[in-house]
Write a protein that binds this DNA or RNA. Structure first.
Length: 702
DNA sequence: GCACCTCGAGTTCA
DNA sequence: CTCGAGGTGC
């Protein structure tokens, strides 16, 4: 029996606990607290949890103690980012830093003042995206490959510096990005503990943070005591906060206001010239920081300018990381092996004694090609220096020649494909016999007067397996295909298994797999078979550009596939395209157009496409831009524009639904002529194509 | 013909 | 991430 008196007491205690926890949390946001405080914090939370388990009526879904939500998971859900998570380009010296700005200024001819930058530390951790709805933390996802990450919401809830409720819980939605890290002190304690338990230690904080967040049981993550620094707002909906979004520095201000921990060393500088001294200052205090960093990040502070510069590949032009040199180690090369790629490229791999570098144990590294091996003068048995590029991919830096014993063996490229035994060849570029081919080149004897770039026009550096039926090549193709279709359930191992079991002979067979095909296989059950079949069914629909990419046409990657899709619109038109029409597209030249053209001339390829469609693949129509006032129009740009770069003009035209071609033909709608326009202008006049000067063009954009 | 910028393709470990 | 190679502007 519970008296109402007693209940009141308990309610009071709950309130007291909550306010004390909130106070500690507040203090935590503003400064680093000693570990003792962590323990007090935890014991308060524990008491509160105990009371709430007995008296659920005092529970409050929004309260901060709800740090642990639920049971261990089976696996993490893959989630597509609403806004792609980009990476950041690197520089390693002041010269490169200045070159970076110079490149940007070239793209901003209209700019008439100095660029301001916001500089901050580059945390050594894991990039994370957090979504808040109506002030409440609803989802957290890892960066993954930038497009797709893993939902680790449960684990992120255990991080104290991630607010579950924002300090200003506005009615709307916000996506915050930042870095999950493990402080040095915490890492030290964790490693001491690991050592006692006979587990291998984490060699750096990034690995520790990554490993901790990948725990399926959130209680384990909680023990790891991670932290989170916020540094970016990817989107805000439902509240008028434009002024915070105008500058990167303002975003930081808002993040702090909302209760996030932000980098307190970060500061705005009035010009690029100030950045080197900032980097210097940080280098000096690097070791004394309570967390690991691997460099300094500089953003163009003005969001408009930042965005107008756009993105190259995966890196926005307006942001750059100054990185500290990577850790190095030495090891001995035991062997050189050969990998077979999707296109048949044979890639040599150095196999060496397992060596610990920058946090993980590495036992192999790609050597890219034979030329690289010769450049390094690498032999089997050599002692080499390795590092991890970007702290991830192992790289052979150099050979220590003074360690040679004379027993080292030179490596010779294999004569037969290690996977299928077919002849190995050094293929002509583009895989087509060109009439200008001048026969084999004699190694080590450069033709007089022949330049390096000329040489590469004749034969590629790589060696190839030319067998179209090579098993290894086909496996790599299947992997490429499912990744283009985003069928995540089918990894390399499963694909191989299906192939070995005779369930599939080509990629099109994937779409006719049934539950009954898969379930009887060892280590597959009803449930997993059903998941796979369902996933495949869900992914049958694909955008035209992804479809083109999935075909694996030589020289056609994601970007070129997109260009082809926007220019031709439908598969029928692409199939029928003349080689000249393909070649006309901006950024597509001879090698690519030949490759695309002959792909669609090949009966086998056409049959494969037909089989895909018969088996249920649906190609989505290329979306016509709603406000596409340039729909159906083809532009050709020539000369120099004063207000914007060509690249950016091109992006504008495409965003309005138009196309950009590289040369003038009768299909051209407009030629935009800037200063010093040349032959394209003459051609346009000859064909009677409408010519726009820069002003007329800018007016059309309005 | 050269210099530059992008893109494609292959890649490591936990 | 890295290197090679394609494409384009000067």
């Amino acid at each position: 029996m519970q008296s109402s008196e007693n209940k009141k007491e308990i309610q009071k205690r709950v309130q007291k606990l909550r306010s004390e926890i909130a106070r500690l949390r507040e203090a935590y946001h503003t400064k680093n607290l000693p570990n003792v405080t962590d323990d007090i914090y935890d014991s308060l939370n524990k008491e509160l949890k105990n009371i709430l388990s007995k008296y659920p009526e005092f529970d409050d879904q929004n309260s901060f103690e709800n740090r642990i939500a639920g049971k261990p998971l089976d696996k993490f859900e893959k989630v597509k980012h609403e806004i792609k998570m980009f990476s950041i380009g690197n520089v390693f010296s002041d010269e490169e830093l200045f070159a970076w700005e110079k490149r940007n200024l070239k793209l901003l001819p209209g700019l008439n003042s100095n660029l301001e930058y916001f500089c901050e530390l580059k945390f050594d951790g894991l990039a994370i995206s957090l979504i808040y709805e109506n002030g409440k933390f609803v989802r957290g996802v890892t960066r993954g490959d930038g497009n797709i990450g893993e939902d680790i919401t449960q684990n992120l809830k255990t991080i104290k510096s991630i607010p579950l409720i924002l300090k200003d819980p506005f009615p709307g939605r916000i996506e915050v990005r930042g870095e999950a890290i493990m402080k040095k002190e915490v890492l030290k304690r964790l490693n001491e503990k690991n050592e006692k338990e006979g587990k291998p230690p984490f060699a750096n904080s990034r690995n520790a943070a990554a490993g901790s967040l990948r725990q399926l049981d959130p209680n384990l993550t909680k023990e790891r005591r991670l932290d989170f620094f916020a540094y970016e707002i990817a989107q805000i909906k439902g509240v008028e906060w434009e002024k915070y979004l105008e500058k990167h520095s303002k975003k930081h201000e808002l993040l702090q206001k909302l209760g996030f921990m932000v980098d307190e060393h970060a500061r705005k500088v009035s010009s690029l010239k100030e950045i080197p001294s900032f980097i210097n200052k940080i280098s000096k205090i690097r070791d004394s920081l309570s967390f690991g960093i691997d460099g300094v990040v500089s953003n163009i502070d003005d969001t408009k300018i930042f965005e107008s510069l756009g993105i190259i590949g995966k890196d926005p032009r307006g942001i750059i990381a100054f990185k500290y040199p990577a850790e190095r180690a030495t090891t001995i090369v035991k062997d050189i092996k050969i990998n077979v790629g999707r296109t048949g490229v044979l890639t040599p791999l150095a196999i060496f004694n397992p060596t610990s570098v920058a946090g993980s144990t590495v036992s192999k590294a790609t050597l890219h090609n034979m030329d690289q091996i010769e450049r390094l003068d690498l032999r089997i048995g050599d002692t080499i220096v390795i590092e991890k590029a970007g702290d991830v991919i192992p790289k052979v830096v150099e050979v220590l020649f003074n360690m040679r014993t004379g027993k080292e063996k030179k490596f010779k490229m294999v004569l037969k494909c290690p996977a299928c035994g077919a002849e190995v060849e050094k293929r002509n570029i583009g895989s087509f016999q060109s009439s200008s081919s001048k026969g084999p080149r004699i190694p080590g004897a450069p033709n007089p007067g022949q330049t390096i770039s000329h040489r590469t026009l004749e034969t590629s550096v790589a060696f190839y397996c030319a067998n179209p039926k090579c098993g290894a090549k086909n496996e790599r193709y299947l992997e490429h295909f499912v990744s283009a279709f985003e069928i995540y359930e089918l990894g390399p191992k499963i694909l191989r298994r299906f192939k070995d079991e005779g369930l599939i002979t080509d990629a099109a067979d994937i779409f006719t797999l049934t539950k009954e095909d898969i379930a009887p296989l060892e280590r597959f059950g009803e449930k997993s078979a059903e998941n796979i079949v369902q996933e495949i069914k869900n992914k049958r629909k694909i955008s035209f550009s992804k479809f083109i990419w999935a075909l694996g046409i030589l020289h056609v990657g994601e970007e070129t596939a997109r260009d082809l899709a926007t220019n031709f619109g439908t598969l029928e038109k692409l199939k029928k395209a003349k080689i000249e029409e393909i070649n006309e597209i901006d950024n597509i030249g001879g090698a690519v157009s030949r490759s695309v053209y002959s792909f669609f001339k090949d009966k086998n390829n056409l049959n494969f496409i037909e089989k895909l469609q018969k088996n249920g693949v649906i190609i989505e129509k290329v979306e016509k831009k709603k406000n596409g006032k340039f729909n159906g129009l083809i532009f050709v740009l020539t000369g120099t524009l004063s207000q914007m770069s060509r690249e950016i003009a091109k992006e504008k035209i495409i965003s309005l639904g138009g196309k950009v071609a590289s040369s003038v033909s009768k299909n051209t709608s407009y030629v935009v002529a800037g200063e010093e326009a040349g032959s394209k202008l003459t051609q346009a006049k000859k064909l009677g194509i409408k010519i726009l000067n820069e002003k007329e063009f800018l007016d059309m954009l309005q």
